[in-house]
């Protein structure tokens, strides 16, 4: 009996790292699947000629996404929660010097010269962007998401990871 228990302990000790690896891979896959489901649902909503869905608090599915968001996914899991957000950005054309991007100056401030005397130097274009933010206290999950999506589309800050989705 003692030998059997010892063998069992040894087998568990050998298998434990693999079990941990598998558990983390499943956790990461689950998070990626939920993110993709949310991204696709929001993109479908936006492609219908509508705007990006309105922002939603972490773990809450927007009513407009309920019909397109697969039911098997949940925005609030045990160790993370997802948040949808949208914001606007400015395409600044005609930067004069590298390293010194001009702020949006298409609309003169009140203390500037009268409108009309200064031509608008920059053509300002607004673009709406969507974003998915994952809140998690597990830094490995945040790092895994950063590796999966890359640093040009996503970033980590504190206990959040954010994926930016350009329109």
């Amino acid at each position: 009996m003692l030998v059997f228990l010892s063998l069992l302990t040894l087998a568990f000790a050998i298998a434990f790292p693999r079990l941990q690896e598998r558990a983390f891979a499943q956790q990461l896959d689950g998070a990626v699947s939920a993110i993709e489901a949310l991204r696709v649902a929001a993109s479908n909503f936006e492609e219908q000629g509508l705007d990006w869905p309105a922002p939603s608090p972490p773990g809450v599915t927007r009513p407009e996404l309920v019909s397109t968001f697969p039911a098997q996914y949940d925005l609030a899991a045990d160790d993370y929660s997802l948040e949808w957000n949208r914001s606007e950005t400015v395409d600044r054309q005609g930067r004069s010097e590298p390293g010194f991007p001009a702020p949006a100056r298409s609309v003169p401030a009140p203390q500037d010269s009268p409108p009309g005397s200064v031509p608008s130097l920059l053509k300002t274009r607004f673009r709406k962007i969507g974003s998915v933010t994952v809140y998690s206290g597990d830094p490995a999950l945040l790092a895994g998401l950063l590796r999966h999506y890359g640093t040009s589309r996503s970033f980590v800050r504190d206990t959040t990871w954010t994926l930016v989705i350009p329109r």
Partner: peptide
């Protein structure tokens, strides 16, 4: 396990500020 490097965290702060700056510009 994957880990977020200090450089990636530093970049994350800069990107967050940049996003906020863009929205302030808007």
């Amino acid at each position: 396990l994957p880990a977020v490097s200090i450089e990636e965290r530093r970049r994350g702060v800069a990107v967050a500020i940049q996003l906020q700056a863009r929205q302030t510009e808007v």
